[in-house]
Write a protein that binds this DNA or RNA. Sequence first.
RNA 1: CGGGGCGUAGCGUAGUGGCUAGCGCGCCUGCUUUGGGAGCAGGAGAUCGGGAGUUCGAAUCUCCCCGCCCCGACCA
Length: 583
Amino acid sequence: MLLRMSTLFLRTLREDPADAEVPSHRLLVRAGYVRRVAPGIYSWLPLGYRVFRNVERIVREEMERIGAQEVHFPALIPREIYEQSKRWDDYGDTLFRLKDRKGADYLLGPTHEELFTLLVKGEYSSYKDYPLALFQIQTKYRDEARPRAGILRGREFVMKDSYSFDLDDEGLAASYAAHRVAYQKTFDRLGLDYRIVFAVSGAMGGSASEEFLAPTESGEDTFVQCENCDYAANTEAVEIAVPEPREAVDQPDSAVLDTPDTPTIATLVDRLNTLGLGREFTAADTLKNVVLKTQAPGQTEWKLLVVGVPGDREVDLKRLQGQLEPTQVAQAEPADLASEPRLVKGYIGPQILKEIGVTYLVDPLVVPGSAWVTGANVENKHAIAVVRGRDFEPDREVGAVEIRDGDLCARCGGHLSIARGIEIGHIFQLGRKFADTFGLDALGPDSKPIRITMGSYGIGVSRAVAALAEQHHDELGLVWPAAVAPADVHLVAAGKEDQLAAAETLAAAFAAAGVRVLLDDRTGVSVGVKFKDAELIGVPLIVVVGRGLVDGLVEVRDRATGERSDVALSAVVAQVSASVGNS
RNA sequence: CGGGGCGUAGCGUAGUGGCUAGCGCGCCUGCUUUGGGAGCAGGAGAUCGGGAGUUCGAAUCUCCCCGCCCCGACCA
């Protein structure tokens, strides 16, 4: 392969585009890889499309390696198919909907579970046909409320999605494991730094669920990782270490105290410490009861919900929502509170919740037998030594507190640290949700139907390009890993005539040796511009045919390390093709 | 949808009531230059986001609308 800068459709920008903030967006635009068409919608230019196709190729190869077979579905899908799975309504505003000339409804696919399931149902009917894994690499559409960060989160993006079809749970587990390995190989080959984190399976249902996150500052997913063991989870799924449970019975009796004007945790703690109770209280000794409301799927009615957390912690609504899916959770409005006068704002305690029929969830930090200062359900009064298992019993535990940097790992007790990452892949065991919806069965050896169980696996192909740019750049520009770079060598002809002629000859030799070469054969461009462009474009090796030519030397530069060495013109092809072959 | 910022040439920007809207990059022509985004000279390119209004006069002031970016809500 030989690409010539003199004719390449490329214009680099000297300055950062004003609308770009994150590094990938800035650099991909500056280096002429992509151009914005509309918010969240981008065109891929020749260099960018080469990187894109390299990523796509690697993803495809690793899918095929585990026996997944590639298909290609339409992006344009009739409404009826999504009606069957209820997602025409359930997906909400994020679904791109459109009408044809007859007024019939269509959508642009955000994911393709329906089509995969229906396709298999239409073709396969025997247990002998399974297991099966299919995948596609397809443009997906989501009408994001707020597209952002260039191609990291667009309204149109390319995703590889695959689905496994198995007869039983063991088969699903095996398919899931195969995909997990394939994803590791894929991201390893791409040169992405990533973490596999536990996730909640969310609205899609199912059990096992893990995300592949590429740690980077501009990532929009927060996750937690243990500094001691390999535990990592996103903030919805994370579990932190909790205190040992205690015996409820042998604890001091509960008592009600006068605590006027203490509707907040801070005012309460101040007051407690003036009462001479023989100990110092902190916010962590109090039990905060936050009033929320929930809406079960398919219901229009909202029900009150109280969540108890230690007073020094906030409730993380997003985390809570993630665990209560598909039930919706929201902050209770004053009007909601008014519907239950026995809940006294600022003085709510769990002691009466059973009696008044309000669901009570506690964070696991509120362990059985733990004693708390909490509201007495009377204006200006709090209760002390309120013990879980004696004075109240929650309906269940749910991880609700905001995770802090330094919280302890539930596995090993090590410190947890919070980081941000880009979700580049997600694997989960979908189970029988769509098989149930569409009646996907295989006929078993006993002539009885077997309901198929599915796994769902996604890789954001276009997003991976952006994630690579996020992880592989410096102040000068992009620094592509060899496997995805638009070329192996960026060959700069530093001068005219002799040097240009020598560069031409060398470029032909590289190409003949199977080295992908980008030749800067532009005349009338100063060498400084060529160097800057080479650094911005980020091909791993830069070879300069310049002043050393009179001595039969060219300069080889490593874009990543900045290392430079002079190599004999006669030896450079062999040296470079060896290093390219090794990578 | 809430909060903030911003719309002037392909890109980055200056210009807060007064002459022909200025500058840098990029682009075109010519000459010079060739190891770090070159120099000189000449040139093309803008309905100043749109509409309405105020005014002798509007990029500039007022109102409405549209769009973009960032934060949040939301979101595999």
